[in-house]
């Protein structure tokens, strides 16, 4: 009982968020628009969590996560359309293919460091985009349209356009699963090793970590999570073409995580809420007169975040909490100092 209480107190922020995500869709009634928005927020946040593993925790910036997102989406679409495979199985297959691809590519790619690695990941997704745009098996330039066959209604999770609640809650459940996984990883040996690699390659090696292996593990997990996001996305959007591999899509996952807080499990979800709501509002308000302005504003926003608070919005929260804690500490120290009439105090 005490343990459960502690769990709630330590993660109160997560539980408040979860409660909001459960209640808000019900509260707005049959408002498909709001449901749409929440589903997109959750999908982007889910992939953002994946991106966070490799780029936030392990410090290897990837600009090519659209590759794994796209693989997940295409796997579900192709298997469902051509072979009537249930999307759950399709998503699992997508995860495995994405992880295998991540292993094959990155085992060599991790010889590169920093910016060079980032550029190489970008190249990977661009190569996939070119291949998928001419490969007839996956629809080539036309892409794949998810077919709805009435006799096979169980095949697609998100087939009913008017009622999105079931799909919304499926997405939410998967996001929660990914979130919990990331949180557990952060506090495990793996998480500590990833962070050590991020902070210093040499130290990691000197304390017995094989950086190559742990980076590959991070990338494989990250790719598998991105593939889940892709699988959800294609079922919801019901159409996929090679655009899904483009830099624009990769950048969404970078944006939501960097905005919310890189290297923080809460980052992607907070960032995703802000990103998608802002993006949609600007597109709807300015779409006719000043289309493209939203991209400019996001560019500026990212510059502001990176310059003033590299840890994103969660960084601002953390600062506030820390400052309050420090003030309390100082106040208590001041009282003890006054009573014992000693000098010193702050030992920093």
């Amino acid at each position: 009982m005490v343990k459960i209480n502690k769990l709630f107190i330590e993660n109160s922020f997560a539980f408040v968020l979860l409660a909001l995500f459960i209640i808000v869709p019900l509260a707005v009634g049959e408002n498909a628009d709001i449901h749409n928005i929440i589903i997109y927020i959750l999908i982007y946040a889910l992939v953002g969590e994946g991106w966070n593993l490799i780029s936030g925790f392990t410090g290897q910036t990837s600009f090519g996560h659209a590759a794994y997102f796209g693989i997940g989406a295409y796997t579900v679409a192709v298997m469902g359309n051509k072979y009537d495979v249930v999307p759950w199985v399709g998503m699992l297959a997508g995860m495995l293919i994405a992880a295998a691809l991540a292993f094959l590519i990155n085992y060599q790619l991790f010889r590169l460091k920093g910016h060079y690695f980032a550029i190489a990941t970008l190249a990977v997704s661009e190569i996939l985009r070119t291949i998928f745009s001419v490969w007839p098996y996956v629809g080539g330039g036309d892409g794949i349209k998810i077919l709805f066959r009435p006799e096979n209604k169980a095949l697609w999770l998100a087939i009913d356009v008017r009622n999105r609640l079931p799909f919304l809650y499926i997405t939410l459940a998967l996001f929660v699963a990914v979130f919990v996984l990331c949180k557990m990883l952060e506090n495990s040996k793996m998480g500590y090793y990833w962070k050590a690699i991020r902070e210093s390659h040499e130290v990691a090696e000197a304390i017995g970590i094989n950086p190559q292996n742990y980076k590959v593990y991070a990338m494989m997990l990250s790719a598998a999570i991105a593939a889940v996001g892709g699988g959800l996305y294609v079922q919801f959007f019901k159409y996929i073409d090679s655009y899904v591999f483009s830099l624009d899509v990769s950048m969404i996952f970078v944006l939501v995580t960097v905005l919310g807080g890189i290297g923080n499990v809460y980052g992607p979800i907070i960032g995703s809420i802000i990103y998608y709501v802002l993006d949609l509002a600007m597109r709807r308000l300015l779409g006719g007169t000043a289309s493209g302005l939203n991209l400019i504003i996001f560019g500026i926003l990212i510059i502001v975040v990176v310059v003033y608070q590299p840890k994103g919005i969660m960084g601002i929260f953390d600062d506030i909490v820390n400052r309050r804690r420090l003030r309390k500490l100082k106040a208590s120290q001041a009282t003890t100092n006054a009573s014992s009439n000693q000098t010193g105090g702050d030992s920093k």
Binding site: K195, A196, E199, S200, E202, A206
Partner: peptide, 10 residues
């Protein structure tokens, strides 16, 4: 290490 390499964000 001679030039200390503290893991600074930990």
């Amino acid at each position: 290490f001679q030039i200390v390499k503290t893991l600074s964000e930990m």
